[in-house]
Simulated scan of single mutants.
Amino acid sequence: MEKKTTVILLLVCQDTVGIVSNLSSFIYNNGGCIVDSDFHNDHQHGFFLGRIEWFLDGFKIERENIREKVKELCDPYNGKWSLHFSDTPIKVAIWCSKQDHCVLDLLWRNQAKELGNAEISVILSNHTDLKPKVASFGIPFITLPMNKENKPEVEQKQIELMREYNIDVIVLAKYMQILSDNLVDTLGKDNRTVINIHHSFLPAFIGAKPYHQAHKRGVKIIGATAHFVTAQLDAGPIIEQDVVRISHRDTVNDLVRKGKDLERIVLARALRLHLLHKVLTYENKTVVFE
């Protein structure tokens, strides 16, 4: 059975009376059938966050004109809004290094159609280690070796490749490099979203070797965090997290092994939620409509 195309509207703005009514009336008055809606009011900071989805089939406004009509509807709220169509492929780039667990997991899930309407277009790495492991997926694998001296040139090439492949979302699947402020800023200006998986339960154990830090501290749980990338290291809005219990018997290697399982799951969940347009950001936080 062919899945019907839907239209998805996301809105973040200052809270005011009548927003839900206006959004719903707009769809109803134009013959639309709402299939999902979810809203959140942050009363402390005065924010409204909403997601509303309806069938394109039967909607009176032609597809090519919907964006302009939604602009007229949402602009008066002086917030941020975006419009999406469920049948539009979202082009994804995976950036990686030597570790394979997150990369292979995402490729398998995408092959099984678990990641929504994702189109993984290219894999970038600063090492060649994973090239033979991902060859069977038929996705271009580009190696850009990086060191302190050539980092600016490599990052410029990365920017050019993202433009060449028309990438919407970049996934740092254990990329193990800190993105420069210039790279983060340029990708943002190009409207490319960057999602990272960090191997700790942020904000604890920021930076390198968090499992070593956790073991030294004697914690009883470890976690993994998927977040949007900002210029500040490991401090972007958090999309998804999970934890697993550990004990005094666990070595650092045990923590790494358990952590890898979490990293796979957390990154896949976060990416899928974003690709389904279920994540809204504000005040360096997220609202996730699951």
Rank of each mutant, 00 (worst) to 15 (best):
G223W: 07
E153N: 09
Q14W: 02
I94R: 08
I34V: 15
A135E: 15
L183G: 04
C13E: 03
D15I: 06
R217K: 15
R67Y: 11
L233H: 10
D261E: 15
S121I: 02
I221E: 12
A112H: 13
T6L: 03
D100V: 04
E68T: 13
Y28W: 05
S247D: 08
V154P: 00
D254A: 06
N166F: 03
W95M: 15
A118C: 13
K69P: 00
A173H: 03
I159R: 12
F289H: 10
P210G: 07
L23M: 15
D254R: 06
D75M: 07
C13L: 02
Q156L: 07
A224F: 04
L161E: 01
A214D: 08
I206K: 15
K157L: 10
L280W: 00
L56N: 04
E68F: 02
A208L: 14
E72H: 09
L124W: 05
D261I: 11
V243L: 13
G50M: 01
V70T: 05
T281Q: 12
V288D: 05
C33S: 15
I167C: 02
H84M: 06
P145Q: 12
H84A: 07
D105M: 05
E72L: 14
H199N: 10
Y77H: 02
S24W: 05
F141L: 11
A231G: 07
E68I: 08
I239A: 10
H101Q: 09
W54N: 05
E119W: 04
S25P: 01
G218F: 13
Q14M: 06
